[in-house]
Nucleic acid binder design. Sequence first.
DNA 1: CGATCGAGGTTCGTCAAGTGAACTCAGCAG
DNA 2: CTGCTGAGTTCACTTGACGAACCTCGATCG
Lengths: 152, 152
Amino acid sequence: MSEPSYDRSRCSVAGTLSVIGEKWSLLVLREAFLGVRRFADFQRILGAPKAVLTDRLTTLVAAGIFARVPYQADGERQRHEYRLTDKGRDLYPTVVALMQWGDRYLAEPGAAPLALEHRDCGAAIRLELTCEAGHPVAGPRDVRPVRRTATG
Amino acid sequence: MSEPSYDRSRCSVAGTLSVIGEKWSLLVLREAFLGVRRFADFQRILGAPKAVLTDRLTTLVAAGIFARVPYQADGERQRHEYRLTDKGRDLYPTVVALMQWGDRYLAEPGAAPLALEHRDCGAAIRLELTCEAGHPVAGPRDVRPVRRTATG
DNA sequence: CGATCGAGGTTCGTCAAGTGAACTCAGCAG
DNA sequence: CTGCTGAGTTCACTTGACGAACCTCGATCG
């Protein structure tokens, strides 16, 4: 439960980073998108220290990205699992963006262990930048940032 | 010049985070996408400690995301500026993803100070998840991750 | 009933990283 | 040469990450 000082310059990037910008947060999300829900599984797969994991999960629950849902497995005691909320699920493009860049630029032998396929048609998933008129947007050069003065 | 231990589980998300996952890195990139190139400007706008900024820029240059280009302004001494490479420019979707999420979920009064418009047509920029067959992909539910065993 | 086990944490000492202030260094103006 | 400024380094301090050990609660065993 920490509040890092990303918040200088009130921008949405900084805001988002103050929620998920800490170490492990995005890796926790990555695993969550792969279906992981239980503390022990996050811990085992990521190898993150329990204390950090506890803190990250608590933060993410507080931020409404995960919901802490009780569940009960066959004759076991009640536990709780961490399930993505819609808000959390909307971070999927962020994780995909990171993955895509890594696949392109960090693909060393033995890397690129994960491909994403469209469940319906099997084609590869891609993240694309477009404008609402449907034109393709190649990169920052095609974009004009418009600073809106907060008149509120 | 640090090598944080993101690298557990050789995945592209972890790899990318080991390059740009540290504090300030993505904010530096955000400013770079807005046209900032000089050390002093990054420092003034972000308010990051100089030491950290030096380290982040050095790391990003070493990673091939920025190029350190000498330049000379009118009667001033030669300095160098940090220019995005293609590799760096390809991180644009990542920053847009963070921004888009923040705009949607953290839009408190006084926030959302930055809109992105397509330079040609003025329409808003959006990041979309699709498959290569052109179908829209709503979220992780529509995606099947395929773990490819690294066969050497 | 009491002892044991294991998931899900918490606590703690240590060590790395982030932070801001002060200092350094390299040209250029005068 | 002296002062000024952008760029960066050094330093003392604080915060956060780390890993190991410990705690807690419910199910099971004896």
